[in-house]
Simulated assay, not measured.
Amino acid sequence: MTTRRRHHDNPLFVDLDAPDESYDDRPRRPSRTKRKEAVEALQALGVRLVELPTDRLAKVDMPDSLRDAVREAQRISDFEGRRRQLQYIGRLMRDVDPEPLQAAIDAFDGVSAVENARLHRLERLRNDIMENERVLESVLSEHPGADIQYLRQLRRNALKERELNKPPKAFRTLFQILKELEAGNGAVPPDEDEAAGTDTADQS
């Protein structure tokens, strides 16, 4: 009589009920390097919070304990004391969701970057105007309501200030006017007192 071979003796048979020793569903702890990187990232985020101006810090939602610690760090001028306070902030950060904090700082950085780019562009425009009066024609084409004569007067006075090594009053005013034009306020001539001061530079 032939003995029937059992399925589990067949090397091609897979017993679905048998435990899979190759699979371990236990959560794995992050490596020491990963843990160190996470701690350093939280500490760096804490430093960014301390660097925020008071008005921006007030807009960031965070636990009172963290806010108090950040404010205390801002008041400390001693290097060692500040270092210890930053370490304390780093420990507090471990119990806080860092995503909203990072998002708030990223938003602040984005606004700052855009504003800095705008100011640099206006500075380049002012320098171009100083080098070539015809650049004012492009300003007028973009801002038809601009007082082109006033802008030309500011340019002449700024050049005179530079030539005579005088304080750059007209030079700064030209920049402010360009900012106002971009904001849609238009180039408004100065009042009588300001006009008199500007004309003085032109007559020197």
Rank of each mutant, 00 (worst) to 15 (best):
D55G: 08
G81T: 02
D109P: 04
D78I: 09
R121W: 11
F79V: 14
T198H: 10
F171Q: 12
R32M: 08
P167F: 13
A113L: 08
F108W: 02
A183Y: 13
P144H: 06
A44N: 12
D24K: 01
D64T: 15
E133R: 07
G197I: 14
K34V: 15
F13C: 04
E137W: 08
L181W: 01
D9W: 12
R82E: 02
E137V: 12
R71D: 14
R75Q: 13
P100H: 00
Q74L: 13
V188F: 05
D202T: 15
E182D: 14
A113Y: 04
D147C: 05
A196D: 14
P190Q: 04
I76T: 04
D199W: 07
L119T: 15
I89V: 05
H143I: 03
D68I: 15
Q203A: 10
A58L: 12
L66K: 02
A158W: 00
V14L: 09
L125R: 03
I105K: 03
E99F: 07
S77F: 10
K36R: 14
Q102F: 03
A18T: 04
F175I: 09
P190S: 05
V188S: 08
D128N: 08
S112L: 12
L42A: 01
H8M: 08
S141N: 12
G186H: 07
A44H: 12
K166F: 11
A117E: 15
R134F: 10
L181K: 00
D55K: 08
T33M: 05
R5L: 12
K59Q: 15
R155A: 00
V39W: 06
A201T: 14
R84L: 08
L164F: 10
A196C: 10
G110S: 07
I76E: 01
R29C: 09
E192I: 15
R155V: 01
P63C: 04
E21N: 07
D109H: 07
D202M: 12
D193S: 11
A170H: 00
L57Y: 06
N10L: 08
I129H: 00
P189Y: 06
P27A: 07
R172G: 06
L49F: 00
D20L: 01
D106L: 06
A183L: 11
